[in-house]
Amino acid sequence: MDRSSIVEYYNKSRNAYKDAWGLEKYMQLNLGLWYKNTKNLAQAFENLNAEVAKRANAEEGDTLLDAGCGVGGTSIYMAKNHGFEAHGITLVPQQAADAHENAVLEKVSHLTDFQVMDYCNTSFEDEQFDVIVGIESICHAPSKKRFLTEAYRLLKPGGRLVLAENLQAKEKLTPTEYDQLYTYGFNGCKINSLDTENQYLQNLKKIGFREYECEDMTRHVIPSVRRLRRFYYPAWLYNQYRALIGKPFGPTELANTRMCYYLYTGIKNGLWSYGLIRAVK
């Protein structure tokens, strides 16, 4: 998936994220984590950020790289709650602008910086960061190993890498399973490949990380995936209405709508999972 396709997706789906996912209020573009006492999406987002901070061994003054930062939600959380000096990077200029505005509103602009940059090929110096996080963003990389290699270069000795990631749950897929997972599912958000847990762990080992683990959190994202399925039905009807009045949506919007249906199918059929990956340089 090329860079321009990813930028187009996030630009065209910006309003959908505002309406369905509270983007302006919560500043998050992820599934969150739902526990027994979680009452709403805002709490699910808080849970995920807290889990990431815990695995990062967050300490005040740490330097953070938020790889694929979206509109800055996690960077801002880390700056506000843990005193991180947070640097967020994204391919999408509009997201970088939104992130800067959000940081000003949340009064942490002095602790944050947002730039348009490819997280697989950054301009940062070697060993610059104490912590690198990626929140459902590394799945966009054509080569996840290439990102992991860049993250290793950027981390200080003892630095921590924490990823909240969608994972392919099966080593091999049948043609039908491939269509469910990618053609009708993740391709809707411009993702055409996911690594398995084993691929991540093996690559972390090969690159040189001295500690690496992945905790399966799949059951804790299912409520959000169900929420997407529920949004599919009114979105599909709206798409039909637009077509009837001669103002149809384009392929990006239609694929995004279809994805809302098939992500639930895929996770229930055991085709993808959700993991929290932690590694130490």
Score class of each variant (00 low, 15 high):
L48K: 04
T265I: 14
E136D: 13
R3P: 01
N192L: 01
L163F: 15
T174Y: 11
E60A: 15
R146E: 15
T112E: 07
E8S: 14
I89P: 01
E213G: 11
A58R: 02
T218K: 09
S224F: 11
A103W: 03
Q180W: 13
R227N: 12
N11W: 00
D98R: 03
S75A: 15
L154I: 09
Q168M: 12
D2P: 01
P223M: 10
N102P: 07
N57M: 05
C69V: 09
A20T: 09
A56Y: 03
T252C: 10
T149S: 14
N81E: 14
S137I: 01
I245M: 07
K268I: 11
G88Q: 05
E171F: 03
N81T: 10
Y152C: 09
K170E: 12
S224K: 04
T63A: 12
H82V: 08
L271K: 08
A103I: 10
A53L: 11
G88W: 01
F186M: 15
A86I: 06
D2W: 00
A243P: 00
G22W: 04
D216P: 08
V131F: 04
V71D: 10
A103D: 07
L33F: 13
G83K: 06
G275T: 06
P142R: 05
Y264L: 15
F249L: 12
N37Y: 11
T174A: 07
S123K: 14
I132M: 05
N37S: 15
I191R: 02
P93S: 10
Y26G: 00
K206E: 15
C214E: 07
I132E: 02
R226D: 14
A20P: 00
N37I: 08
T174Q: 05
A16E: 11
E24H: 03
I132V: 15
D195F: 12
T176P: 00
R227C: 07
G61C: 06
